[in-house]
Write a protein that binds this DNA or RNA. Structure first.
Lengths: 146, 146
DNA sequence: CCCAGTTATATCACTGCCTTATACAGGTTT
DNA sequence: AAACCTGTATAAGGCAGTGATATAACTGGG
């Protein structure tokens, strides 16, 4: 078991690499129509299906009022809609609309395009190394999602 | 030359992986004392040395007034200071302070710690794949920095 | 069955950080 | 020195977050 007070040099190297990479992705993301939280929430609704409002704010790491306001904005822009839960009159069930799905797709495509332009400048073996690392990235994401 | 209208399936897979990964990093970053731009700017000042204000706003992807305001906040918090350029009376030279360096280090350590906790749950070969992908990540970051 | 407590959402007042438009001081050119 | 250009600051406004609190709907014990 790894000590929490000492970080391995290798982990530190990975973290440093990820840090630069995070900045890269941040700059790669076009100043879009969607805020970070809005994009992430829509993405979650897209792959996970409708959710109650109270099930959305915690995983997105924002307060409940922030999620209420976000859903209000999304609704106003036609990207999501509020519904009710027949089993619980208090609950608000949030559903992504087709327009919302399109917005998610557009955002993804914009980022993919910018990334692809960089990827094609990469030596073949580094490109291959990225592809080889994808399962690890997936697993990392999965670890936190649970 | 790649068509701009068609993206290779491989690039799309990398982009999709990166997208989930970006969300992961976002959630991994502790709600810290520093905004995204503040952290990135301090980091830049830390590794690149003092810069004029006008050299900071473009690479950070914000407007010039935003950078003026950010520097004012950083100065108020003691993380950076304004100096003058003896060669140009208009210029403001921004320098990171020791407190600023500490803030960057704290932020990095927080993220590293959270990441390390995930990394140790990774199978050895996936961990190795991440390490192997680091040079590619570095090069990607370098491509955009230029 | 009703009152108390809990849960889900909304509203309010405030703050942080961004934007565009504009002012202005310091350089540069002719 | 007049005209222009560049670097920074200020002003006014918007979006997205916060904590505190209100309100409506569910739940469980007497």
């Amino acid at each position: 078991m790894r000590q929490t007070t000492s970080l391995s040099a290798e982990d530190a190297a990975i973290a440093a690499g990820f840090e630069r990479f995070y900045e890269l992705l941040r700059r790669l993301t076009p100043r879009s129509e969607l805020s970070l939280t809005a994009a992430s929430t829509l993405h979650r609704l897209d792959r996970g299906g409708p959710r109650r409002l109270c099930e959305l704010h915690a995983p997105e790491g924002v307060s409940q009022p922030a999620m209420t306001q976000l859903v209000t904005r999304l609704e106003k822009e036609g990207l999501a809609r509020r519904g009710s839960d027949p089993e619980d009159g208090r609950a608000v069930v949030v559903t992504i609309t087709d327009a919302g799905r399109e917005a998610v797709a557009r955002r993804r495509e914009g980022r993919t395009r910018a990334l692809a332009a960089l990827l094609e400048q990469l030596p073949a073996e580094e490109h291959a190394a990225l592809v080889a690392a994808l399962p690890a990235l997936d697993r990392l994401s999965g670890l936190l999602a649970s």
